[in-house]
Amino acid sequence: MICKQASKQASKQASKQASKQVVYPKLRFPQFKKCKGWEVVELGDVFDFLPTNSLSRDKLVEENGLIRNIHYGDIHTKFSTLFDITKENVPFISSVFTTKIKESHYCQEGDLIIADASEDLDDIGKAIEIVKLNNETLVSGLHTLLARPIESYFSTGFLGYLFQANFIKKQIQIESQGTKVLGISAKRLNNIFVIFPSKKEQQAIADCLSSLDQLISEENEQIGRLKTHKKGLIQQLFPNI
């Protein structure tokens, strides 16, 4: 406990010093090399946290619903960093419980949904950015935090990747609490520092990384097809007895 507190204090002191300086990344696109450094601010200065629900998995259904629901387990296991609802299999809230959901709690494009619980230190605070809702109704559910930018500081797609940066992840790990299951609260997240450049540079970063994600997805699909083809060949090349 003492070691963790000391580490937390040292991290905060280092972050406060960093916030007074100009921050530059190790790698930068050529058109931005002469631009000013990245801004450093406390997360609570640029985000508001909105209410979420605590509906467990058994309160959700796979079809015939009106409100889709993000469960923290799906953030850990299947949802893409940049969440496009047309490309994801998202459960609905059972009609019995939809009356408890207020319209003011609906997600918007540009929101960040953060998993606030995990058994794995590397996954605590794992986040997805809502980039496309396709006019569907979506809410943030069990063990999640719903963060919304206060102003238009961020370009579409940037936040999802920002929260994969070691600078962010290490702060979240220090602020997390628990032994077997780790947790992070909105109050503690407000204390961490976030960094960001101009919106043009943000967009360039998001476009670059999302194109790599698309390539990875296409390669994984090709691997899946080859595995299926291999299984078929095995069944045909070896006779049955």
Rank of each mutant, 00 (worst) to 15 (best):
C3A: 03
C3H: 00
A6T: 14
Q9Y: 12
S11P: 08
K12P: 01
Q13V: 07
Q13R: 14
A14R: 05
K16P: 06
Q17N: 12
K20P: 02
V23R: 15
Y24N: 02
Y24H: 05
P25E: 00
P25Y: 00
K26Q: 03
L27P: 06
R28N: 00
R28I: 01
R28W: 00
R28L: 01
Q31D: 13
E42R: 09
V46D: 12
D48T: 11
F49A: 05
S54D: 15
S56I: 14
S56A: 15
R57M: 14
E63M: 02
E63I: 08
L66T: 14
R68W: 09
R68Y: 10
D74N: 05
K78S: 11
S80I: 05
I85Y: 05
N89R: 11
P91A: 11
F92E: 14
T99Q: 12
I101Y: 06
K102Y: 04
K102E: 13
S104I: 12
S104P: 13
Y106I: 01
C107R: 03
Q108M: 05
G110V: 02
I114L: 08
D116E: 08
D123T: 00
I124H: 06
K126F: 00
A127C: 05
N134C: 10
N135P: 07
N135A: 11
L138V: 07
G141D: 12
H143E: 04
T144D: 07
L145D: 11
L145P: 10
L146N: 08
A147D: 13
I150Y: 14
E151N: 13
F154I: 09
F154R: 03
T156Q: 09
G157K: 01
G157R: 02
A165F: 01
A165W: 07
F167C: 07
K169H: 01
Q177W: 04
G178T: 12
G183S: 10
G183T: 06
G183Y: 09
A186E: 14
K187E: 12
K187D: 09
P197N: 00
K200F: 12
Q203S: 15
Q203W: 04
A204K: 14
D207I: 05
L209W: 06
Q222D: 10
R225E: 15
H229T: 04
H229P: 00
K230S: 06
K231V: 01
I234H: 05
Q235Y: 11
Q236R: 15
Q236P: 04
Q236S: 08
F238R: 12
I241K: 02
